[in-house]
Design a binder for these strands. Structure first.
Length: 519
RNA sequence: GGCGGAGUAGCUCAGUCGGUUAGAGCAGAGGAAUCAUAAUCCUUGUGUCGGGAGUUCGAAUCUCUCCUCCGCUACCA
């Protein structure tokens, strides 16, 4: 097995001080589709997700609920694992930052940074808002008439000095810029890359790397009064997931990661701090970091006060898993913000899945069942129309690879569904139902071509809609071991003469529950 | 304020190293067909390509300017 056949992909790890929400689900679905895509394309994939369980907020939530913080982490982490199962995520591992293996990885990283001379002790001082637990620049604060200094959120601030370890981030400015320059694909999409380059060019300050104000975290080696700053802790999970610090671990060759999929809000931590840490530790850098956008409910940001928070479990319950996966991956250009609504989801489900793809499969397969004894018909001498549509389908894989190399799930699905539309046009133009009497052999050829197109489309859809695609491939009698992308194109043609199971609909239309009551 | 991005059909967007009559999907209207999940297929758009000016034989595509919206501008993540 060669290095370039491995593919290591990660989601950001979620902060489990509450329940999983749609944003967590979105990232996991998209990353899962990318992981599955690479597997289908023959790569040996390692895909991890997890939870980031330390920090003051977890401590506060636990205190508020009157439970131990570890108990809170255990309880909520389970919810994220359940979400992964509900979404049919194919992650190979789930890293929890409270696990011993992760502590070991973080200690090792810390010591590497220290050995590189990039860690030093100093004091961190600033105007601190106790209520917000945040430091502010003096310029962000003001002394009001009551003689008290206030922060930007109108809470009182006080001067606080805290002993802290620092990381010489400032020393990495040039090397980071050089890396961005030499590896333009390091950060995607391009607008995020521009922002990061501009940020780094504006100058980097050293980074406070430890806290002494709370103790729910990973202890700094040889100075247990300090716990590590959240990002050292959180980012290192990507190393934990491949067995670090044991570089003899079977998973270690997966490093460096091929792709970190993250939300745009944490771009800087991944594109500036993370590579700097890795450079300092003498480890290779991930190949690419891609920031996706946020999802909005009918164009409005989700918030508890507006009452439009959508639970991913409820969404799956209402529409079904694969339709939900399809909707997010197809509707939202990955990397941009997106909007979802009941109408939009139903529109996609019914138009694309039920009417176009589902119906294409059903209309062709039921004709085979009724007119060909359920046996894949012979493919006679192809005519112009056959050749045209088959060559279009056979050309799909490079388009998919190109789209997915840029994390453009929407573009990949657009390519696939353009073929679905072509196939419906082909079917309507050939009128196999009319050929039934006039030219049964030709009818067989048309049905063969259509089924072959459905086969390839189903194979291509596997990363996005695993269960539904499997159901389609079952209906076509495609063996489990004949579903990889190496079977796309001419080489994998459906075998004439093979017996098919009775066709059944794979993508039901979404019908409003209300209309049932009304009628 | 600084840097950057965006403004194209009712909706979501594609198209921009300048070049034939500016495109797709969805929604709407009309028609055909009946294999199929009442699904499908065909036909149908007078769009100031944000406003204005400029460069050019020619601009949605380049330049300038104005308007509007958005992102980034470090230690909550």
């Amino acid at each position: 097995m060669t290095d370039d056949n491995r593919f290591y992909i990660t989601t950001a790890i979620s902060y489990p001080n509450g329940n999983p929400h749609i944003g967590h689900a979105y990232e996991l679905i998209a990353t899962d589709a990318m992981a599955r895509f690479q597997r289908c394309d023959g790569k040996t994939v390692h895909f991890i997700t997890g939870t980031d369980e330390h920090g003051q907020k977890m401590l506060q939530t636990a205190r508020r609920e009157g439970i131990e913080v570890q108990a809170l982490a255990d309880r909520n982490s389970v919810k994220f694992k359940e979400m992964a199962e509900t979404l049919n995520a194919s992650n190979d591992d789930f890293v929890r930052t409270s696990e011993a293996r992760h502590h070991a990885a973080c200690r090792e990283i810390w010591q590497r940074l220290e050995a590189a001379g990039d860690i030093y002790k100093d004091s961190y001082a600033g105007w601190y808002s106790v209520r917000e637990e945040a430091y502010y620049q003096e310029s962000e604060t003001e002394v009001r008439g009551d003689g008290v200094r206030y922060g930007p959120q109108n809470t009182p601030v006080e001067w606080v000095e805290e002993e802290s370890y620092f990381f010489r981030l400032s020393a990495y400015q040039d090397r980071l810029l050089e890396h961005y320059e030499e590896h333009p694909e390091f950060i995607g999409p391009p607008e995020r890359r521009n922002e990061i380059v501009s940020f780094v060019k504006s100058g980097l300050r050293d980074l406070s790397m430890s806290r002494t104000t709370f103790d729910w975290g990973i202890k700094v080696p040889n100075d247990e009064r300090h716990v590590m700053y959240v990002w050292v802790d959180a980012l290192t999970n990507y190393l934990t997931g491949v067995g670090y610090p044991d570089e003899g671990d079977a998973r270690w060759p997966f490093w460096p990661a091929d792709l970190h999929v993250i939300g745009k809000d944490i771009t800087r931590f991944h594109c500036v701090y993370w590579p700097a840490f890795l450079m300092s530790a003498g480890l290779p850098l991930p190949k690419r970091i891609f920031s996706h956008g946020f999802l909005f409910n009918r164009g409005e940001k989700m918030s508890k006060s507006v009452g439009n928070v959508v639970d991913p479990f409820a969404l799956v319950e209402t529409y079904g898993l694969d339709p939900v996966r399809y909707f997010f991956l197809r509707e939202v250009p990955f990397g941009q913000d997106g909007s979802y609504s009941h109408d939009a989801i139903v529109g996609r489900i019914n138009a694309d899945l039920a009417n176009d793809l589902g119906n294409l499969a059903q209309r062709s397969l039921s004709m085979i069942a009724k007119n060909c004894g359920g046996i894949v018909p012979a493919f006679g001498e192809p005519d112009e129309a056959d050749r045209a549509i088959l060559s279009a389908v056979d050309a799909l894989l490079p388009q998919l690879r190109e789209a997915m190399a840029a994390q453009a799930t929407h573009a990949a699905l657009a390519s696939i569904f353009a073929l679905v539309a072509d196939a419906n046009r082909y079917f309507a133009a050939q009128e196999p139902w009319a050929l039934k009497k006039s030219d049964p052999e030709r009818m067989g050829s048309v049905l063969y071509v259509t089924a072959e197109i459905v086969r390839q489309i189903a194979i291509a859809c596997q990363p996005f809609m695993p269960s539904s695609s499997a159901a389609l491939l079952d209906l076509l009698g495609v063996a489990e071991d004949a579903r990889g992308f190496d079977r796309l194109g001419e080489g994998g043609r459906l075998a004439s003469g093979s017996e098919l199971p009775a066709p059944k609909p794979v993508f039901p239309r979404y019908v409003e529950p209300e209309s049932i009551k009304d009628s």
